[in-house]
Amino acid sequence: MKTLEYPFTKDAVQNLRAGERVVLSGTVFTGRDRLHKFIGEGGTVPVSLKDGALFHCGPVMVKEQGGWKVLAAGPTTSIREEPYMAGIIGQCGVRGIIGKGGMGAATAEACKNHGCIYVHLVGGAAALTASCVTEVKDVFFLREFGMAEALWVLELAGLEGVVTMDAHGGNLHQDVLRNSQSNFNK
């Protein structure tokens, strides 16, 4: 299985194709509905997302001895961020999206134009994903957005996913959709 480590280079990202499984390591940034809307409406984030991955995730965190401990951190449905995602990829230089369910045409186009991929995780595998988080490095917008919507900076080791949208227009979701519709029409 290929590995992908932060910072994600354009080459490494372009080297992966839809349908390939990949192991992710290094820093990722969580963000979901509130954060995407915030950036999409002109807000700036206090960290650089360049060559990084946005992880669509609202984790369960508990405070422990002054630091944060992650208990559950599976992916959330990505399609809700479709109105903002393409803009964020272009504007912030995001190289990877981690989530579930895939995204729409605008995001697919932005992935192709800027060199970005979508990595699909197993939804509901929250404890397993949390066990791949080696460190909760930082958190932003906790008070403003709440635990689930905050921007958490996580250090990952050995998180497995499937590339379902690549930087060349390959899209596993479209393939499965077409196939299932034709199975129904049979």
Binding site: C57, G58, P59, V60, L71, A72, A73, G74, T76, G123, G124, A126, A127, L128, A130, S131, A148
Partner: peptide
């Protein structure tokens, strides 16, 4: 992992 670690099955 959730059962043995007493952890939520899903973050949602």
């Amino acid at each position: 992992v959730s059962r043995s670690g007493n952890l939520p099955l899903c973050q949602d």
